[in-house]
């Protein structure tokens, strides 16, 4: 299979590889996929809770080159966006940017799911104390 130049670039020079402390309340973690399916993505965001801006993003991916590139690209796009803006990133944007062939579209879907899962985790963490107070 021939890869696009952008996929090759992300594979050779993945951006924002790493892990954050997932217990921190300003960090949201999304882990999607399964080893037996051949793809697992972990995507993390660190959000400035005052401004709602994503200040940092990190990923680690087990998967093919397109999966690595999709998650690497996602971290690039996330940084500097507000949480709400980040929710607007669509898998088709990733497909277009990386010129993914049809058989690799699931990689972009996985990246979109990882973004949503990370944001969801962050929101749950932020929301948890509030809802606890409401209950009491």
């Amino acid at each position: 299979m021939a890869y696009s130049d952008k996929v090759v670039d992300h594979y050779n020079n993945p951006r924002n590889v790493g892990s954050m402390d997932k217990s921190r309340t300003d960090v949201g973690t999304g882990m999607v996929g399964a080893p037996e399916c051949g793809d697992v993505m972990k995507l993390q965001i660190q959000v400035n809770s005052a401004t709602g801006i994503i200040e940092d993003a990190k990923f680690k991916t087990f998967g093919c080159g397109s999966a690595i590139a999709s998650s690497s690209l996602a971290t690039e796009w996330l940084k500097g966006k507000s949480v709400d803006e980040a929710l607007e990133i669509k898998n088709t944007d990733i497909v277009n940017e990386l010129a993914l062939p049809p058989v690799k579209i699931h990689c972009s879907v996985l990246a979109e799911d990882a973004i949503k899962a990370a944001i969801n985790d962050y929101k749950t963490k932020q929301g948890a104390p509030v809802s606890a107070e409401t209950v009491s």
């Binding site: 892990s19 882990m31 999607v32 996929g33 399964a34 080893p35 037996e36 399916c37 793809d39 697992v40 993505m41 972990k42 680690k60 991916t61 087990f62 699931h106 879907v109 996985l110 799911d113 899962a117």
Partner: peptide, 20 residues
């Protein structure tokens, strides 16, 4: 991420994966 979990001593067979 699987290597990281393995190194942290996580039993991958016990993890709830969100399979596609």
């Amino acid at each position: 991420p699987l290597w990281e979990m393995f190194k942290d001593g996580v039993d991958l067979s016990k993890v709830q994966w969100t399979a596609h």
